[in-house]
Design a binder for these strands. Structure first.
Lengths: 322, 322
DNA sequence: ACACGCCCTGACAGCGTTGTCCGCCCCCTT
DNA sequence: AAGGGGGCGGACAACGCTGTCAGGGCGTGT
């Protein structure tokens, strides 16, 4: 910038004014400055600007894994909202590890992001307290923060959606509905299990429940165990997109009714089409990011807890008779 | 930091030394400083650090759309490599618009990212020249830069893979193989078309070629037109993952052999399984990012042009007889 | 013609950090 | 006991930018 000023024969501050489109610069001068800028290939140093002004125009996003379609969709929506607010997005995948989540959040804070959207992997967010006090805005998406922290949260209607799925299967005449979900430590998995159990009431049988990170072999074993029971399941409710896909593989053509939580591409092209309880990851991302920007714009209201609806999409697999 | 120094009763610089783990600080002093840091919830301001040191420990990634599984996979791989080098990742989606690509790249440069991995949407990268001269390292992935710029590039073997797919279909006895690809302005689409045409030789018939952004209705019309020909296609080669999925929907059960470029989840669960020429997006991301970091570590060799192999995965749809 | 005011420009400080350099003090050696 | 050296701590400037404030030149009104 100094070089530009020298080249254009003006003061540093005048160049700054031109670069920032501030008023009060003679058009001819501005033109000379712009010419110098082009000639020298000058580009403003945002780090210095940030240092001076205190706002980074950057938000952070911590998700579980960008390569998961659910989070990819959420990610894209957050990005779009950020762009609309002239912000950039720093993102990182926690890989479902609390430590990694914390590292990411702390790194983002050290870079003075204006705010963060977090899909928490850990259960303790005490480490966030100093950040929150320092004014960093945080919105939790998909899962709530650990106990003792009341913050903005955007969740899907997990238990409700699970209940919906189970009642749909019961409505088809199924009496034995299994649940295949992710590790119980994961909030969404636990909530969906709760919704499943509540909807089943007396019919609930823990032998029909398998909860662990989805892996084909393990799931196949779980399913075999269930099918070997006296009264085997005639329907399965899977707890998230990856569980659904893994289950479809593990079932290998066995004819069972199935409803999955989370929609996924090609669910309609399989035979039978896969009935799902669909969330809208893009909407979740958008809502979370918009809430974050409202906070950044000075909204100081009490923490909001938004619950997004889910919807059942019948495609065939959930309508199979027992 | 000043506050910490005051609180600990030491000089600013001493705190800096503690924070950076520099030697030459008495253990007791260091402990006092750390206590003050904890007490005050101090966190180093990276912006100031960047300003002073000149390195941001951040790299940029410009892709077409994070929500596309191909780019999501690539993205995750780049992120992993960045993390391994203690770098953060700024990412943005160009949405296949040259202007947006340029904006993203320029914004990243203004933030002084150390380097950028770009999946170019535009064809003219003259705007990058000043950045390159300023020392910003750029690696192109999936598509090469526009003419006149020789830079590090990581590409898949597009034409070769397309030829492979077509020869596979010809080997099953097909004489009429159609190509359904993305817009011809997209490098990968054009290359795959080239491979397709070269492999067909005399059998090439432009009436069996449809190239445009994949949308179900338009593609259905294109396919109907082809099937209405005197000698309709008995096999289809689709030019990328989205085209494959769109084509599967547009075909709606019509029995035609099909090989798609790009693998996708569930391709094995459809009936028949979808035969594909698979690239490895994670590998592309990893290779590109590692090349970038080699450059950042001072490798000044001539630009590299890496071509990644693809592999044919037969699953049934490509093995249907005419 | 003079005063006043407006428009434009520039000097300067400071954002929070780190690199350089200097000086103190203590301990060891002679 | 005096001199030298090393280990430790501190003062200062600079990174590139922007906010504040002051000042110069020129037009306008009386």
């Amino acid at each position: 910038m100094k070089d530009v000023a020298t080249a254009a024969g003006v003061a540093l501050k005048t160049v700054s004014r031109v670069v920032n489109g501030e008023p009060g610069v003679h058009p001819a001068t501005a033109e000379r400055v712009r010419a110098a800028i082009d000639r020298l290939g000058y580009r403003r140093n945002e780090s210095a600007r940030v240092l001076r002004r205190g706002r980074t125009a950057t938000i952070g996003l911590v998700i579980e894994d960008v390569a998961d379609p659910f989070y990819a969709g959420l990610s894209r929506a957050v990005e779009d909202v950020a762009i609309a607010h002239d912000c950039l997005l720093l993102s990182g995948s926690s890989g479902e590890e609390a430590g990694r989540e914390r590292e990411l959040v702390e790194t983002f804070c050290a870079r003075r992001v204006d705010g963060i959207v977090v899909v928490p992997a850990g259960a303790d967010h005490g480490y966030l307290r100093p950040e929150l006090e320092a004014g960093t805005k945080v919105v939790f998406a998909d899962r709530p923060p650990g106990a003792g922290l009341d913050a903005d949260t955007v969740l899907a209607d997990n238990a409700g959606g699970a209940g919906r799925a189970v009642r749909h299967l019961l409505g088809q005449g199924h009496e034995r509905v299994a649940f295949v979900g992710d590790a119980p430590a994961i909030y969404t998995a636990a909530e969906r299990h709760r919704g499943y159990r509540d909807a089943l009431g007396d019919r609930y049988d823990p032998r029909l429940v398998a909860m662990r990170p989805p892996a084909e072999e393990a799931m196949r074993a779980d399913l075999e165990r269930m099918f070997a029971l006296d009264r085997p399941p005639t329907a399965i409710f899977t707890g998230n997109g990856r569980c659904t896909v893994t289950a479809l593989r593990a079932l290998a053509g066995r004819k069972v009714a199935l409803v999955g939580f989370d929609d996924f591409e090609l669910a309609d092209l399989l035979r039978p089409g896969v009935t799902v309880v669909a969330q809208d990851p893009a909407r979740m991302g958008r809502v979370a990011a918009e809430l974050l920007f409202r906070r950044l714009c000075g909204d100081e209201g009490p923490p909001e807890h938004i619950r997004l609806p889910v919807r059942l999409i019948p495609r065939g697999s959930g309508e199979l008779a027992p």
